[in-house]
């Protein structure tokens, strides 16, 4: 985030009476629950080696298709791999996929939206109309098309999902920037002689960032779901990668004998998506500068 340091010092000596941001977030039950699940996911992802009792790809860690037990908390799959370990390592992959895909959508989308709103005229029409064209196709379809061209792999799935998400971020950012641009404070800054960079990055960007953070958090769940769908179709993560979507897909063949093979990856995906969704909603509340005084 481009945070200006130039004038920040001017007001630093005066009193700061604002409630810390995190406090505002966790005061809401939804924020606390969402944040707790997301933190758990991050811990799982960071310390997968320490948490997982087995290697996620080691075959015959136990007998194939054993049901959940103390030795194998979530059972084993058809190759005898420990499901719990695979889910834990899967968290790492899932977060990676989500963050990279959203990172791609967010950065390109924000840039397009800001530039279109600020430049106006021909540039605006060109950028937004082409965005509209892409937007008229379903995200999954675009992602599929990209993977079809790039070839099936986890990396390509991330890129595909990221690019497919660009129009949504571009339009949100565009709308948000347009409304900020019309406000008097923006014109006052123009009148004070502010140049393009200052207007774009010190006034427009910081004021659209809260909106973008919220939709990125909500978009994370979307991206995770889309990537899982690609993997489920065999176009994303390839075996033996412990990706939740791919695991879900592999578990289909054994659904009758070993339902846990589909249940736990499915639950993991659902819980993650839910967590990011409610966290996103809570973030929107907490990031509203006018909401700070509310208790």
């Amino acid at each position: 985030m481009t945070q200006a340091t130039d004038t920040a010092a001017v007001g630093r000596d005066a009193r700061q009476s604002r409630t810390p941001f995190v406090l505002r977030l966790v005061r809401q039950p939804a924020g606390a629950i969402g944040l707790a699940i997301v933190v758990a996911l991050v811990v799982m992802a960071l310390f997968a080696e320490q948490i997982a009792p087995y290697s996620p790809i080691k075959m015959a860690a136990g007998r194939p298709l054993t049901s959940p037990s103390l030795a194998h908390l979530l059972g084993t799959d058809e190759f005898g791999r420990d499901m719990f370990s695979r889910i834990v390592y899967g968290a790492r992959l899932t977060l990676q996929i989500g963050l990279i895909a959203v990172g791609i959508s967010l950065s390109i989308g924000t840039l397009i939206g800001l530039v279109a709103a600020y430049a106006g005229g021909f540039v605006e029409k060109l950028l937004m109309r082409s965005t509209d064209v892409v937007f008229s196709f379903t995200e999954t379809l675009i992602a599929l098309a990209f993977v079809a061209v790039l070839g099936p792999s986890l990396e390509n799935a991330m890129i595909a999902v990221g690019i497919a998400g660009v129009p949504f971020y571009a339009r949100t950012c565009y709308a948000s920037a347009l409304s900020e641009e019309g406000k008097p404070y923006f014109e006052a800054s123009i009148a004070a002689g502010a140049g393009h960079a200052r207007l774009l990055f010190l006034h427009l960007l910081p004021n659209v960032v809260p909106t973008m953070i919220v939709i990125a958090t909500l978009g994370l769940s979307n991206a995770i779901l889309a990537a899982a769908a690609l993997s489920f179709l065999g176009l994303g993560a390839q075996p033996p990668t412990p990706e939740w979507g791919a695991m879900l897909s592999a578990g289909r063949d054994f659904f009758n004998r070993a339902p846990w093979l589909m249940l736990y990856p499915g639950l993991a995906i659902a819980l993650t998506v839910l967590a990011f969704n409610i966290l996103g909603d809570a973030l929107r509340e907490a990031l509203d500068p006018r909401a700070k005084e509310r208790s």
Binding site: A4, T7, A8, V10, G11, A14, K183, P184, Y185, F186, E187, A188, S189, A191, A192, G193, A194, H203, P206, N207, P289, R290
Partner: peptide, 24 residues
Amino acid sequence: QMIFQDPYASLDPRFSIGRTIAEP
């Protein structure tokens, strides 16, 4: 220079008062 009608929208909500006045 200009002074606007709506006192709520005429200051950047993310700029402190000092920073707003210092900007020019």
